[in-house]
Computed example of a mutant assay.
Amino acid sequence: AGISALGQTYYPPSLAAALDHTWRKDPVLYPERRLQRLIGEFSARNLEGRPYTRAQNVRATFVAAYDRALTDVDVLLMPTCLTTAPAYRERPDFPALLTWAEGNDDRAMGLPGLRNTLPFNYTGHPAITIPCGRSDSLPVGMQLVGRHLNEATLLRAGYTYQHSVPFDELIAVEATR
């Protein structure tokens, strides 16, 4: 939700207020927010913000580590997710949505699927994911990570990859019925 440059993050107050209003207005539409709010409230009441401030205080260490990794290369390539995509299942109507989300595995909230993407929200390094194949007929993505303010290199690398492989075949939707 913020604009990030060189590991410094700015969150526009108007955007935060609009999101908060939306989440409060129809919380059943955002079941993952309930857990985030509970964790946030617990942290505020019992830990007084210490985990957040510690995380912010070590951010520069993580930024520097990725900067060093990118010293001699233009782009880092890694899997986007550590697991394959979950198989498609019909989603129930909204009144049952919360029960559906809570009854699913942790991929219902994006974890552990986001484990490789979250560091770049934290460090501010640009990253892009590109479909690169399939595992058991489910899509697999590769993530490219670049230097700060060098999104153009990532886009060129993604474009080059897309035009070097049978990309239309990679991203084609397979019928499952």
Rank of each mutant, 00 (worst) to 15 (best):
V63E: 02
L19H: 11
V73N: 01
T129Q: 08
G133C: 00
P27L: 04
R33L: 13
S14E: 13
V73D: 00
V165G: 00
C81Y: 05
Y159H: 11
P79W: 02
R59H: 09
L111M: 15
A172G: 02
R68G: 09
D74W: 04
V28P: 07
D20H: 09
L114R: 10
I171R: 06
L155F: 12
N46W: 09
A87S: 09
H21G: 09
L76M: 02
Y161V: 03
P95F: 01
A127Y: 07
T99V: 10
A64K: 14
R134F: 00
P119K: 06
T123D: 03
R50M: 09
T83N: 08
W100R: 09
E169L: 05
D67C: 08
E48Q: 12
A87G: 08
P131C: 02
T129A: 15
L29Q: 13
A18R: 12
T53R: 15
L70V: 04
A16T: 11
G146E: 01
R89F: 04
N104Q: 15
R134D: 00
R156D: 03
R177V: 10
L35G: 13
G40Y: 05
G110T: 06
G133R: 02
R68C: 07
I128V: 10
A60F: 10
G110W: 02
L138E: 01
R107F: 11
M142P: 06
Q36P: 04
L6W: 13
E48R: 14
R34V: 14
A65W: 10
L138F: 11
E32P: 13
Y52S: 07
D136M: 10
A5C: 10
A17D: 07
R177E: 08
Y88I: 12
R54A: 13
R50C: 03
L114H: 13
R89Q: 11
P92W: 03
N57K: 15
T160D: 04
Y30R: 08
Y10A: 13
E32M: 15
L35I: 14
L144M: 14
G124D: 02
R147Y: 05
E32R: 12
P166S: 04
L98G: 11
Q143G: 02
E41R: 09
A96I: 04
T53C: 06
T99W: 06
P13V: 07
L138S: 05
K25Y: 12
A64D: 12
E151T: 01
Q8T: 12
R147P: 02
P31A: 05
C81R: 08
L6K: 14
R50S: 07
S4H: 09
G40H: 05
V140M: 11
S164K: 02
P139A: 11
M142E: 01
A152I: 08
R59G: 05
A96H: 09
I3C: 10
G141K: 03
N116T: 10
P86F: 06
P13E: 03
Q162V: 00
T61Q: 15
P95C: 02
V73I: 05
A18K: 12
Y11F: 13
Q56I: 07
L19P: 07
V63D: 00
L111G: 07
I3P: 03
L170W: 00
A101D: 11
T123R: 06
T9A: 06
Y88D: 04
D67E: 12
P131R: 00
D136A: 15
A60I: 08
L149F: 11
A16V: 15
G158N: 01
